[in-house]
Design a protein around this nucleic acid. Sequence first.
DNA 1: GTTAAGATCTGCT
DNA 2: GCAGATCTTAACG
Length: 196
Amino acid sequence: MLLTRSFYKLDTEEVACGLLGCCLCHETEEGLVSGIIVETEAYLSRNDPACHASRGMTRRNATMFGPPGHAYIYFIYGNHYCFNIVTGPKGLGEAVLIRAVEPVSGLDLMYYRRGKVESITDLTSGPGKLCQAFAIDKKLDGHDLRNKPLFICGKSTVGDRQIVVTPRIGISSAKDKKLRFIISGNKYLSRRESVG
DNA sequence: GTTAAGATCTGCT
DNA sequence: GCAGATCTTAACG
């Protein structure tokens, strides 16, 4: 059950929330890896200085202004990629950052790609980490997530889980906005839940 | 052409 | 808990 374009076109905060529990899959020559999304952040076009699109379209963020359901991937801090999903109608410039997933299949491949990790909870518990484990890089920028090799399936065997909203992480502006969505208590979150 | 800042991770204290 | 790694992007001259 692939997620449809009409889903990605919804309000960005709705998509960020709705993506929790969905399954991210990536097929490569090395094999298939997949994981359940457990942590997301919404980046809005209006009144959100932390969003790359807040100052208009540039070469880097052009993908954010494209059709919803495409991957927006950028390189940060010289070492890491961040994986986003474009949301809202085309031209709006909003996206959802995938911050953490719970590994499901392809664990050996994830360990191999990540190199030295001591715990399974270090495989994909952060934006840079999951991109490395999933072999996501700039070649996939603009990729339509309804197609292989990188795609997202809807909720399957996931039961009811409690979703919590908190302030975003790792940004210096607009910290007060509660646009981070997590599955409460999940051990693969990028950081521990703090009491709001 | 040059420079400052960044949606992070890791290792050391 | 804190600083360093490391390089792309964007703003400025």
